[in-house]
Amino acid sequence: MKKERAPTIRDVAKAAGVGMGTVSRVINDSGYVGKETRQRVQEAIESLSFKPNFIASGMRSNRLRSIGVIVSDITNPMFAAIVQKAQQILLENDYQLFLGVTNDDPELEVQLFQTLEHQGVSGIMATLNDDSSPQTAAMIESLGVPVVLLNRALVHGKATVVASEQETGCRQAIDHLVEQGHRSIGLLITDQTTLPGRERHSAITSALARHRLAPPPELVATVRHDVSSGYQAMAKLMTLEMRPSAVVVGSNRALIGALDYLRQNHLRYPQDVSIIGFDETDVTRLLSPAITIVNRDYGALTTTAVDLLLQRINKPLRKTETVLQPTWLEKRESVSKMADQAGT
């Protein structure tokens, strides 16, 4: 049996009584089309079950209706949630998502940016391994497609940024610990090569200073976004002669390692040490006791970033801008009063 021919843009134009250019403007939502004419075209599209071929139209304009999304680690729950939300929004806007994962490899990161541009994506949304690198800034500014950075900000260049405002959540976290009587507070903070590490370090230090506190160097450790570094850093703090009564862990992956160290060494939270983490994950939500966290809305963060990127695609000369999303403390069960902790 001969396969039925799929309807074309010419068929839609004929059914609606308009030219193919008018149909194209309706499909791509570009240029002026009168209300009644637009309705006729949309009715024709629906009645014919016409499916626009965005790939073909993109090839003719040398740009696909697609967006590149670059993240460092797809196994990180935060990045997985961001990719899932971005794909949902892009599909609603008739864009496809091309995913690149750097695995914290700076050379692969550069390769992914260049490959996505050469493949003809309309724009790129990315987190960076190191937003303090001059080479990374120069590479991004040289690209011929719009870029929006998510929770990253170029130290040596300009880019449109959507990021979390860290000051409020960090201040609330330190205030909560101090209210519960904690003065010896350990910090497991990510390094200064990305915006969250710089902002969290600054915000926590400022919040401690408001209470006339400053952690000694031995109570501060740098962690990566992985389990092993969290384990090692917590081991360093908890084997000190004067170990902290509370620890703030600035990475959701490092938090898993920190909690694993406590478990393996028969230490309990919050009885032996109070814990505050960052970002909602299954671990923070489902563990008992539940983990107190500095939280943010991944969905709102991603929605804003994708919307800005689509705006920049339609208006390439739009100035770069920075949009900050809020953070807040969610008090749960992992912080206790000093009088309730073992040995106090």
Rank of each mutant, 00 (worst) to 15 (best):
M1Q: 09
K2M: 13
T8R: 08
R10H: 13
A15N: 02
A15W: 00
A16W: 07
G17V: 07
T22G: 05
T22S: 13
S24L: 06
R25N: 11
I27G: 03
D29G: 09
G31N: 06
G31R: 10
E36V: 14
E36Y: 07
E43R: 04
E43K: 09
I45W: 01
E46M: 08
S47P: 02
K51M: 13
A56R: 11
S57D: 05
G58D: 12
N62R: 15
S66Q: 09
S66P: 03
S66A: 15
G68C: 07
V71M: 11
S72W: 02
I74S: 10
A86S: 14
Q88C: 01
Q88E: 15
E92G: 15
N93L: 06
Y95I: 13
Q96F: 12
L97N: 03
L99Y: 03
L99E: 09
L99P: 13
G100R: 00
D104S: 12
P106W: 08
V110S: 14
Q111D: 15
L112K: 06
H118Q: 14
Q119T: 05
Q119W: 08
Q119A: 04
V121M: 03
V121E: 04
S122Y: 06
L128R: 03
N129E: 11
N129G: 14
D130A: 06
Q135H: 06
Q135L: 12
M139K: 12
E141S: 15
L149Q: 09
L150T: 12
T160R: 00
V161P: 00
V162L: 07
V162A: 00
A163N: 02
Q166F: 08
G169L: 09
C170K: 08
C170H: 10
C170N: 10
R171C: 05
I174E: 09
H176C: 13
L177M: 11
G181F: 00
H182G: 09
G186H: 12
L195M: 10
G197H: 02
R198N: 05
I204A: 07
A207I: 05
A209G: 05
R212K: 14
R224V: 01
Y231F: 15
M238A: 01
L240E: 11
M242S: 15
R243F: 13
A246E: 06
N252A: 11
A254G: 08
L255A: 09
L259D: 02
L259Q: 06
D260C: 02
L262D: 01
N265R: 07
H266A: 14
L267G: 03
R268I: 01
Y269W: 06
Y269L: 05
P270S: 07
D272Y: 07
V273R: 05
V273H: 08
S274K: 01
S274V: 06
E280T: 08
D282K: 05
T284G: 07
L287A: 11
S288K: 14
P289N: 11
T292Q: 12
N295S: 15
N295I: 10
Y298A: 13
A300G: 11
A300V: 12
L301P: 00
V306I: 15
D307M: 05
L308D: 03
Q311T: 08
R312F: 03
P316C: 11
R318C: 02
K319Y: 00
T320Y: 12
T322E: 10
Q325T: 13
T327M: 01
E333P: 06
E333D: 14
E333F: 03
S334M: 08
T344L: 09
